[in-house]
Structure formats: C-alpha cells, structure tokens
Design a protein around this nucleic acid. Structure first.
Lengths: 233, 233
DNA sequence: ACAAAAGTGTTTGGAATACACCCATGC
DNA sequence: GCATGGGTGTATTCCAAACACTTTTGT
C-alpha cells in the first residue's frame, strides 16, 4: 500500500537534507568518504553521505545522525560549510541541503567501512568518481574551505593519528595546500605555536634515522583560542 | 474563509526562511537595518528583514527579494552567513533560516526607509533594541564574520560612499575591528594594496587642511582576486 | 594666530625566506 | 658503507610597528 501524503501545509515547502564531506588522510593523499547510492535517483552512483532532516533535530544533529548511520563515524569535529539551494540540484524536486564538513582519522574508520556502511568507501579527492546531485560542487567548496582554514587554524591534526611525526604533518599541509614547504621553516613555525607535545617514542624499523613522535596539545590549543590567539601558518 | 492546507507530503517538512543582516556605516557608527514586525509572533518587536523562501527561487534569490520588498534595497553584495536550525528558534514551529549578510552605503538608503519600507530603521549595532526570534544570535555571528572578513578582503568599501577620504576609511576599520590604528601605517598598508584611485577633488568648507577624495578600484580588485592575490590588512 | 585634521619618513625588531650539512638507522 | 629520511643554524630580506613633525584651511 502506498503511503499517503499526510503532512499538509498552507504553503509549499522545500525538503531539507544534509550532506557531509568527510576528509581523511593517508600518507600521500587527501581522501573523501563516499557512499554508493542504493536507490534512485542516481542509483549506483557515488555521493556524499547525508539525508533528510528530521523534525526533532537540528541540521547539525541530522548531519551527525546520517553520518553515523551511513558510515559508522561519530563523535567528530563537524562544521557547517554552506547551504545549497539551486532549483535543479535534486531531480526529486525542491530540496535544500545544508552541507557540513568534517576531518577524521582515516585509519580509525577504514575497518568500519566494510561493516556499518557496506557501501562507504574512501576516494582520493583528486581522482574520485563523478558524483550524484551537485555533490561535486559541494566537494569543491569544501576543499576550498579546508585550504583556507588550515592556514589559520590547526585543524589538520584532526586528520592525523594521535601520534605523528613532523614529516607526516608537513606532508599533510603540502597535500592540502598543494605546494611544497621548506622543512626547516615549517618546523620552526609549528614549534613556535607551541601546540605539540614531544613523546618519548620513535619510529621503529625504518631504514633511516627514526623520527620522534609528537601529539597535539588540544587542551593548550583550547586555552589559547579562548584568549584570542592566532595560529597562522 | 480559512485557507486550506493543500500542500501535502509523505514526510513532515520544516519551513525555510531567510534573514538578512544589512550593515551600514555613518561617520561614527556601524549600523544594522531592522524591521518592526507588524504581525505575530513578536508583533511590534524589531527583527532582521527576511521571510519565507518561495519554491521557484534559491535562498539567495529569496533573501534578495525579501530585502527589496521590506527595505527597498537591491543590487547589493550579499553573502551567505549561516543556516540556523534550532528547534525552538521560531514559536510558529519548525523553521530553518538561511542567513545572509550585506554591506550597503547607508546614505543611499536612508531616504527609502520611510518610503518602501515604512518600518525599516537603522540602529547602531552597539545600542540596538532587543530582537525577535534568535536574531540577536544571528547578528552576533554576522558581526564576528564581518570582523574576520574585513581583515583579508576589501569589503569595507561597500559601506562607504563612492568617494571617501582616508580618514573615513580608517575610521570604518577602527569601528569594525574595535581597535585604534596608527594613521601612517594604515595608509601605507592600504596604498600598498594599490586599490584606490586618487580623485581630483578635495573636501570643501572644512576648518582644516582639506582631505583628498579617493574611490575604490573595483575593476582592479576583481582582476587581482582572480589571480589569487591576498588583501590582508 | 590658532585650532583641527591632513599628510608624510625613518628607525627598529621580528618574522619569513632561503639555503647546506651532519645524524641515526636498516640493509 | 651506503642509502634514506631526520634533524638542525644562520644570514638576508621584508614587513609591521612605533613614533613626531609640517602643512593646509577656516575662523
């Protein structure tokens, strides 16, 4: 039996969805998490995770819920990106989408992608598949925002594992900013921010001098943020 | 006769509105344009201009249409600020609002406020009235964004008349950034950007050395923007 | 002549850049 | 011992900040 259209209003209303751009990073590449669509429209195409907003949740809550349902990811930094409302962006009709982006530790969620979300998969942002809806436009904007944001806020750490080497961190910046950076100057700048904790641990089994591991001092970052400090790179 | 609820959907949908934060500037003050509400809810209270999005327009188009209908302002720079979706933000029910902000030349629209929009009025952002809905929250976010944005994009010119003196420009920056700025350094920095055209015109009837007028070189700005130039202050 | 704002130049310190060599480790 | 990346110091350039006096105009 067909479900009836039982929610009625005086004036027409657009549907409201959320979309999530989830960035991850593995040594060499910036990646984005995509879902293979199981239903029409765009069945079989890759798309950003997301879905319709419920009436008892904010768009941010909706984005987080959908993200968890479709990819198993939760408890992550998520930030509103933009609201997309082009008339033709969804063939089902008038759908407005509030997009959020998030940075996660890729390795934490690599396993899960075969579990909670059978059809979730990481793709390089440079060589990803073509996407459903206007999701390529959304992805482009997210990349642009990430590039701008990483220059003045230390959000890059969200993409790395708990402990990381200086070279890994530099590589992350190089990939996101699409430029190469002088090793010595980069270290000086980062160390001047004084947001890294040096660990008593080194790389093992590497065929060169073992690099020290560091971790990000989140507590200190939050303290300094409150005082209005700048973290420009 | 009551209008019937004739727009029906399978699932409930939130209503979608837009709100506009319109900033203006007069010699000494940053101002925001507000509307006195003529109907419930919040009848008689001051609010940001805005209204429901139509089905045949994007949210940006809707924001511009409402802005024109309620204040007579059109053809202005407008930028998406944020989408607000708290469950309790509107007593009429579930209403999601996409907020836009805009910078206009206050003097251009001072007259109109008694015309197209009888109840539109400029208020100092510092000593404005309390606002309807969550509009104070929206205004706070817009101020924060403006403060951040003016540091790296020359949007301040949108707030000044066609021609202006250096002192007026500096004063604008001082008011928005809430700090005082060294006159000589400010001029050097602005002049280095090379975005001002010196006019053959000076102040008249002032009891001191007459200041030169300048105008903003929008064409050049757009050229340089395309090339990826930075305009940090 | 004086009040009031316009307009300008120089010095100084600190940050950004550019650049080259030694160090530890596994093979 | 050699290949590989880790790790560091210094000289130079440029920009930001601090600062004070002269100029023009109306009254």
């Amino acid at each position: 039996m067909e479900k009836e259209n039982k929610y009625c209003y005086k004036y027409p209303r657009p549907a409201v969805t959320t979309d999530c751009i989830i960035f991850g990073f593995d040594e060499s590449d910036l990646k984005v998490l995509l879902i293979e669509r199981g239903i029409e429209p765009f069945k079989g195409k890759w798309a950003l995770p997301g879905g319709f907003v419920h009436m008892d949740e904010t768009t941010e809550e909706g984005a987080k819920r959908e993200l968890f349902e479709e990819t198993g990811i939760k408890d992550v930094y998520i930030e509103q990106l933009f609201t997309f409302s082009d008339l033709e962006r969804d063939p089902r009709g008038r759908v407005i989408s509030v997009a959020y982006f998030s940075l996660v530790q890729l390795n934490k969620y690599e396993a899960k992608a075969g579990d909670d979300a059978k059809r979730a998969k990481w793709f390089s942002v440079k060589n990803g598949p073509s996407l459903a809806f206007d999701h390529e436009k959304i992805l482009r904007m997210a990349l642009y925002r990430l590039k701008g944001k990483i220059r003045y806020q230390p959000i890059g750490f969200e993409l790395l594992s708990e402990k990381f080497t200086f070279t890994e961190l530099q590589h992350l910046y190089e990939v996101i900013l699409e430029m190469s950076i002088d090793k010595r100057n980069f270290r000086k700048k980062i160390q001047k921010m004084d947001l890294l904790i040096e660990l008593d641990e080194k790389q093992e089994n590497v065929a060169h001098k073992a690099a020290k591991y560091y971790k990000f001092n989140k507590t200190k970052y939050e303290e300094l943020s409150l005082k209005g400090f700048n973290f420009e790179i």
